[in-house]
Amino acid sequence: MILEAVMLQVKQGMEEEYEEAFRQASTIISSMKGYISHELQRCIEVNGKYLLLVKWETLEDHTVGFRQSSEYQEWKHQLHDFYDPFPTVEHFENVPLEEMG
């Protein structure tokens, strides 16, 4: 499993509109091959700051399957105008905390 983590900064005063657009766009990402789950967290200390966490089965499910799809073009159309600056996407993998063997 891969965790996609994105820190998002939404333009001032557009937070409510963004959250509604994100709710609608969520159906796009949740329909993709390899998608497991996602959540959007709102920062308490900084207005307009959000953390998007998406779980994918593989890195390629996100970077190829989603990013190179027509569905991604619709995702961009619905959401990308809200961001300033444009966010950096990072991917993480779990570190086992129990010793093997």
Rank of each mutant, 00 (worst) to 15 (best):
E16F: 10
F82G: 05
E71D: 11
Q9P: 00
K76W: 00
L59T: 11
E17S: 15
W75C: 05
Q78C: 03
S69Q: 08
Q78N: 03
K55W: 04
Q73T: 08
M100P: 08
G48L: 03
P96H: 01
L59E: 14
M1H: 06
E74L: 15
E17Y: 11
L59F: 05
E16K: 15
Y72W: 14
K33T: 09
I36A: 02
Q9V: 00
E93V: 05
Q78M: 15
F92E: 03
Q12T: 08
G101V: 12
H91P: 02
L51M: 13
E98C: 07
G101R: 13
M14V: 09
L53H: 01
Y35N: 06
G65T: 15
T27M: 10
R67D: 02
Q12M: 00
S31H: 08
Q68D: 14
W56V: 03
T27C: 03
T58L: 02
E93I: 06
H62A: 04
R23A: 04
T27A: 14
I44A: 09
T63D: 08
S69T: 07
L97N: 00
E17D: 15
P87D: 02
W75V: 12
L52G: 02
S26G: 15
Q73R: 13
K11E: 09
N94Q: 13
Q24H: 10
D61C: 11
S30H: 08
E74A: 04
M7Q: 10
N47C: 09
A21L: 00
A5T: 09
V6C: 12
H77R: 15
E39G: 04
E57Y: 00
T63E: 09
H62W: 09
Y18L: 01
E71M: 13
S31R: 10
Q9W: 03
E39A: 01
S37L: 00
A5I: 10
S70T: 11
M1V: 07
Y50G: 12
S30L: 01
Q41G: 00
D84W: 10
E98A: 14
L97P: 02
I44V: 11
